[in-house]
Amino acid sequence: MKIAVLVKQVPGSESALPLNNYQNWIEESSVTFVMNPPDNYALEEALLIKERLDEGEVVIVSMGPDRVQKVIREGLAKGADRGIHIKESPEIVKDPLLIAKSFTTVLKEENFDLVLSGLQSDDTGMGQTGVLIGEMLGASTATLAIETRLEGDHIKVKRELEAGWFQWVQLPLPASISIQSGLNTPRYPSLKGIMGAKKKVIKCISSDLASKQAQTIDKIFIPQTSKQTEVIEADVDVAVSRIVEILKSEIKVF
């Protein structure tokens, strides 16, 4: 079983997000980056599948500038076997079709049985890469997976539907499946894993995507609100007494 896990490096949830000079993205030099949280679940699922089968290979594939090697190493430290870094500028990494074409070129050569990815990235939130790649590879696809069961030459996926509904879908391999958060408990790398990761191979591929971007992000800005909000920014005791007053006289909870 050969499994690719597509991992993206994104700004952490507590990171500062200052706009860049062109106001078309954030100033990356002051951002703290992490592994995209749903991708972390996808990686864990891949490692669990491999461990259950007691055979196979888990390969981390990540696209972006050199900084993304950090998340590849993190994946290797958790137990993935090797990494592939597709070098690409941050602008391209915002156009889903271009991203998917570039991944597909690399993945095709490797003949993976399974491609796992997070369902959506915390940065651009396009939520389509895994499915685009599935189509381009001619593989079957499923999204919002919250449980997987590998059974011979097919995989059963429990899909999350809206408002607390679920559905099982059975797909033949090869398949590209995007993973919803919460389906497992991602491990932390062990010290041994971190040491071992240093010896594992990361293959660098420079993607030569000459084609034009089909979709671009042109501007980013801070959302404006129209709602009247009372802002309470005070020391704890003052804030507490104001909240008590609101609960009592305005919302009338008692």
């Binding site: 889903p96 079709l97 998917a100 396009m126 389509q128 685009l132 189509e135 919002l144 899909r159 809206e162």
Partner: peptide
Amino acid sequence: HTYQTRDFMPRVSAALDIPFIPD
């Protein structure tokens, strides 16, 4: 932008090479 859209619309996008701006 429903779960169903997330599930199949990217397939259409890739098959026809039409960009998909979601959400």
